[in-house]
Design a protein around this nucleic acid. Structure first.
Length: 400
DNA sequence: GTCAATTCACATGAAAGAGACCACGGTCTAGTG
DNA sequence: CTAGACCGTGGTCTCTTTCATGTGAATTGACGA
């Protein structure tokens, strides 16, 4: 019985050949069902090869519709071409959603400067100073810069349209260089909130990425599965079911790929040789559970306390699973006293609840109860099976 | 019964404060030649 | 004389409070039929 625990791991053949293919940062050589969009972007960007400034582009589309992928793909090709032709072209890609990287105006510009290979402190400098540095770098030589701002809606929501205004304006002052912007956004309506002048200069061209339908997702999955899995491990109907799941969620290809990958992992772990349909359900549940757990565990204390109040309020008044802000706040105050946490104001807790809603842990809907006021109607969004574990996790973390 | 005013219980916005982090420039100190 | 330690000032960023304003429909109460 002197068995090494890892022995099984090696002995058992993996179902995968190359798991990386299914991960979201993987760039395949071909992108099915996006030919039209890609060629449109290409047309718009083509003048860059002659060192003429391409129009600014705005790209919309729900998550997992291939916006980022297509943009990366086409800019890469553009770069290759530019190198051949000797055009001094640069593509800078920034994801505005990443916390502590580019989610404020200062950090965005600082990140850009870093991309140009210069160190910039994370804080401490005035923002206009940072702009000046950026400006100087840009204008140090004749070059064309294509700036890709991914998830730009996040940035705008937080900081307003200042950064965009400044970036579009910077062109007028650049002597040698030119800069053009590609904005990528999940949100179709956020652009109404920005200054019309910024809007018009930013969206000289507009492009929409429609969601994939189930058949298209199947194509994508089949293509990737061919290189990701060993032949024959995918059972009949697995791809179809994955696609159906994802198509239900507004055609999110990323989700479909994740589902397939996790299903493969689940199958592998349980020691079977083929990925079956039942593994997809398991995978779906596992993904959701992992996600929620992760979020819950990494939230700050106050969020956890609020969430705990929501859970316990919901549990105590069993039967009705809809609870209101007032009840939550009362419970929350009691809880704070119990664990010695300084309670936040109701104003703040109201925001916290809204944020928990955004994270998808709870569902909160603003309703009016007529004479009895206006409030958020909160219900718990996670599957009941994982509730006890979450509650346990929160209790540990809060010291109960 | 109808209709507009009222009213509740919060939502939502804006501004500003606290505290953490940081850069920069000036001053002080100790070590060196 | 100079390198490094040590301020003080001014900046960003996040989380939060304070103050103010907004809001949608159940309820109320006046009104006329």
């Amino acid at each position: 019985m002197k068995k090494n625990f890892f022995e099984r791991f090696f002995k058992q053949d993996s179902l995968f050949i190359n798991k990386r293919v299914l991960q979201s940062n993987y760039t395949p050589e071909t992108i099915p069902h996006r030919d039209e969009q890609i060629s449109q972007i290409a047309e718009i960007l083509a003048p860059a090869l002659k060192m003429e400034r391409p129009s600014n582009v705005f790209i919309y589309g729900k998550t997992g519709t291939g916006k980022t992928l297509s943009t990366r793909y086409i800019t890469q090709q553009l770069l290759n071409m530019a190198a051949e032709k000797g055009a001094d072209l640069r593509v800078v890609y920034v994801n505005c959603k990443l916390k502590r990287v580019a989610d404020t105006e200062y950090r965005l510009v600082a990140q850009l400067i870093r991309d140009f290979g210069q160190e910039i402190p994370a804080t401490g400098l005035p923002t206009d100073e940072v702009y000046k540095i950026f400006f100087d770098i840009l204008d140090s030589k004749r070059q064309l810069i294509i700036l890709v701002l991914d998830e730009i809606d996040q940035l705008i929501k937080k900081t307003g349209d200042e950064p965009l205004y400044n970036l579009t304006r910077i062109n007028e002052e650049l002597k040698k260089s030119q800069i053009s912007l590609i904005g990528i956004s999940n949100d179709l309506i956020f652009i109404d909130k920005i200054d019309p002048r910024v809007k018009s200069s930013l969206s000289e061209e507009e492009l929409v990425f429609p969601p994939y339908n189930a058949l298209q997702i199947q194509d994508i999955l089949k293509l990737r599965a061919k290189t990701a899995f060993k032949p024959g491990v995918i059972s009949e109907g697995v791809i179809e079911k994955c696609a159906a799941y994802a198509a239900r969620e507004h055609g999110d290809a990323r989700r479909a790929l994740e589902l397939l990958r996790v299903a493969g992992e689940v199958a592998e772990r349980s020691g079977v040789e083929r990925v079956g349909i039942q593994h997809i359900d398991e995978a779906d549940e596992k993904i959701e559970k992992d996600r929620v757990f992760d979020i819950v565990a990494t939230q700050p204390k106050q969020f956890q306390a609020t969430l705990y109040s929501i859970l316990t309020t919901g549990a105590s008044s069993k039967g009705k699973n809809l609870i209101f802000t007032g009840e939550i706040y009362e419970n929350y105050k009691k809880l704070c006293q119990q664990i010695g946490l300084r309670p936040l104001t109701q104003r703040r807790v109201s925001d916290v609840i809204a944020e928990l809603d955004m994270l998808g842990i709870i569902n909160a809907k603003v309703i009016s109860k007529g004479r009895y006021g206006r409030t958020r109607e909160v219900s718990i969004a996670t599957p009941p099976s994982s509730l006890p574990k979450i509650q346990k996790l929160l209790e540990d973390s809060l010291g109960l």
